[in-house]
């Protein structure tokens, strides 16, 4: 699979989750992040269950294999401590896009329909960095 050597290639793209003491019953940022990853994975799994929902005029939905790759990638990035995406959407061309927005900075992980991956970073909508990772 494409997935699992990806995380090690993403250092330049990485923004680790800061940890906070949750001894007083406040959810730690780590816990919140894991919950967000869980929601991302649930959303992807939902597509597997009901792919028909993604069919639309002019749209090519992701295959079952690509959705599975997106799920495995999500598990791996969560385990590695990456910040969960703000959104995960189909790209309309058989792929999947994870987007993380933080102020004017937007980071995207684009999983293409062939399983290859592209990392992009934008500042105020201007592309500042883009890295294409080869197929594993």
């Amino acid at each position: 699979m494409t997935t699992l050597n990806v995380a090690s290639s993403m250092h330049a793209f990485k923004s680790k989750v800061a940890l906070r003491d949750d001894s007083q019953g406040i959810l730690s940022l780590e816990t919140i992040n894991q919950k967000a990853w869980r929601e991302t994975i649930d959303k992807l799994a939902g597509w597997q269950w009901d792919i028909e929902e993604l069919y639309d005029e002019g749209i090519i939905p992701p295959s079952e294999g690509i959705i599975q790759t997106a799920i495995e990638l999500s598990f791996r990035l969560n385990e590695e401590g990456y910040v969960a995406p703000s959104s995960v959407v189909p790209d309309g061309d058989g792929g999947v896009v994870f987007t993380h927005r933080n102020g004017v900075i937007t980071k995207k992980i684009h999983l293409w329909d062939d399983g290859s991956i592209c990392l992009s970073e934008y500042e105020d909508a201007s592309l500042v960095r883009r890295t294409k990772l080869p197929l594993a």
């Binding site: 993604l54 639309d56 002019g58 090519i60 959104s87 959407v89 309309g92 058989g94 987007t99 995207k108």
Partner: peptide
């Protein structure tokens, strides 16, 4: 298409996938 989740009504954010060309 709303089915793709490219526009979030709550945050008013539009994902750039809305302008992504496909193989057709």
């Amino acid at each position: 298409p709303a089915s793709q989740g490219w526009y979030d009504e709550a945050t008013k954010e539009l994902n750039s996938a809305a302008f992504h060309p496909n193989r057709n």
